[in-house]
């Protein structure tokens, strides 16, 4: 959250320099309204993702695009790039903001909220490209969109690969 706060503060300050107070307030008002209605706006989920959220670690082929956790991923699977489905490859940085999907695990019959963080700071991995779009939405619903570069707010904002981290069971 800290980095999102910093980023939001920075962008808000930048915006304030260039727009009128009225339009800034209108914008913030809409964003806040949106935040209340849609708790899944792009936010920093890194801290939460680091704690085990869904019991046992899923065993599956993390290099296979058909793996259920990848149901809304769009990019190179980090497990083919030196990382795993939950870790970025050495020397890259995790994106603090991300898009999410809701994927069905046929193993236990549950639906899980999955965070698809990008790994940043190196050129495209170029291996195991995987694009699945269950529940994916266009850019105007940003938190569900996998087209944008989610490294956009990183100091090193080049895109390398994508991970998929289980955040919890959907609806809980």
């Amino acid at each position: 959250m800290q980095s999102f706060d910093r980023m939001f503060e920075k962008s808000a300050r930048s915006l304030a320099k260039r727009t009128s107070r009225r339009s800034l307030l209108a914008s913030l008002g809409q964003l806040l309204t949106g935040a209340a209605l849609l708790p899944l706006l792009p936010i920093d989920r890194t801290a939460r993702a680091q704690s085990p959220a869904a019991g046992a670690k899923p065993t599956a082929d993390e290099q296979n695009c058909a793996y259920w956790k990848f149901c809304a991923i769009d990019g190179f699977l980090c497990a083919c790039c030196g990382g795993t489905s939950t870790s970025c490859p050495p020397g890259t940085q995790t994106s603090p903001i991300t898009w999410i999907g809701t994927c069905h695990n046929p193993g236990d019959g549950r639906d899980y909220i999955v965070s698809y963080n990008d790994c940043c700071g190196k050129v495209s991995c170029g291996d195991c490209f995987c694009n699945r779009n269950e529940g994916e939405k266009p850019m105007y619903r940003l938190s569900r969109n996998n087209d944008v570069n989610w490294c956009m707010a990183n100091t090193e904002s080049n895109y390398h690969c994508s991970v998929s981290v289980i955040l919890g069971v959907a609806g809980e």
Binding site: R18, T19, Q30, Y140, L142
Partner: peptide, 8 residues
Amino acid sequence: EIDTAGCT
């Protein structure tokens, strides 16, 4: 620069 209140 024009703020678009989340519209893209």
